[in-house]
Nucleic acid binder design. Structure first.
Length: 306
DNA sequence: CGAATTTGACCTGCGC
DNA sequence: GCGCAGGTCAAATTCG
């Protein structure tokens, strides 16, 4: 029996208020029910918490990997959004119907921020690096009323991709960042982080690639004019590390993760054999290796023990 | 040396 | 019309 504790933390900020979904326990449990088939089953509670509504899916479309009709959630976070907020966003969306240009004129500057479809998330510093998309920083501006500057990123995976991301440290909550996604990716999500040029790769302390850590530390220097910050060292706690790296797992790709979260209609279970067919457990082993080498933990302390 | 980041300049929208 | 604030560009710089 193994138990994985998914302490997902996510907050979605509406235009005028914020909602917290902290401390929701998504705890899939393995049930070894049959001799030749083993199933990973999810509690009703988790399923209920996880699937808020179809509207949520609609809201997250900009961050889906759309490929052959299959959708996959972006790796960074899974957020629970109250219906009032969703409706608000949808209303906004309806008002902001994109009109195809009738001429060849291409405006040099995009529409104002509040005219675009956007999703605002509040993430922990650890969650920032679990975004699978490749982002390239193209600007940084001080924001009035905030002691911290806002960083502007564009998708670097595809040249013509209009997807944008803004990252701004929260001035009210230390250690959290307000991330705003704008526009949609016009391409599929990169299959592996290693193939990404730039900033987002493994964040294990002993990883060869230290860009993400370095970048965030740099941001801290810039964004902490008063020298006060709570996450200078990125806080590689085993708990947050496990969560983030788990989200990085190649799910081989869409069906497994869909099945994991949805289960089948009959028994809400997914065959472990199916999971072995993909990279699922290969990914877990990577996590395990990284985890044990980084923190000197053995199997008994690691959440995934076989 | 190529790619990513930094940063000042520039552009646009909005409120007055 | 003017000024401010937010968003983007692009040359310079840094990094691997």
């Amino acid at each position: 029996m193994m138990i994985m504790d998914w302490g997902l933390q996510a907050v979605v900020i509406g235009s005028s208020s914020s909602y917290s979904a902290n401390n929701i326990d998504f705890s899939p449990k393995l049930d070894f029910q049959e001799s030749d088939h083993q199933y990973l089953s999810f509690s009703h509670e988790m399923k209920k918490e996880f699937f808020i509504s179809d509207e949520l899916e609609e809201l997250y479309k900009p961050f889906y990997h759309v490929d052959g009709g299959q959708n996959m959630l972006m790796g960074s976070s899974i957020s629970l959004i109250p219906k009032e907020i969703i409706k608000e966003e949808k209303r906004e969306e309806e008002q902001q119907q994109v009109v195809a240009p009738t001429s060849t004129y291409v405006p040099k500057y995009k529409k104002r921020k509040n005219e675009q479809k956007r999703v605002v998330l509040q993430l922990k510093a650890d969650d920032l690096s679990s975004d699978k998309w490749a982002w390239r920083k193209y600007g940084q501006k001080p924001i009035k009323g905030s002691p911290y500057p806002r960083s502007y990123y564009r998708c670097s995976s595809s040249k013509g991709c209009l997807a944008r991301k803004q990252v701004e440290q929260s001035c009210t909550e230390n250690g959290t960042f307000i991330v705003t996604y704008t526009a949609e990716h016009n391409h599929s999500q990169p299959t592996r982080r290693n193939s990404l040029a730039g900033t987002i790769k493994s964040k294990f302390p002993n990883s060869k690639n230290t860009n993400i850590k370095k970048n965030i530390v740099k941001d801290e220097k810039i964004s902490s004019p008063h020298g006060s910050t709570s996450n200078n060292n990125l806080g590689f706690s085993p708990e947050t590390l496990m969560i983030d790296e788990f989200q990085e797992i190649e799910m081989n790709d869409h069906e497994e993760i869909k099945n994991m979260f949805e289960g089948s209609d009959e028994n809400e279970c997914v065959s472990i054999q199916e999971m072995f067919d993909g990279d699922f457990f290969a990914g877990l082993e990577d996590i395990h290796d990284g985890f044990t080498s980084s923190f000197g933990c053995n199997n008994s302390t690691f959440p995934f023990s076989f």
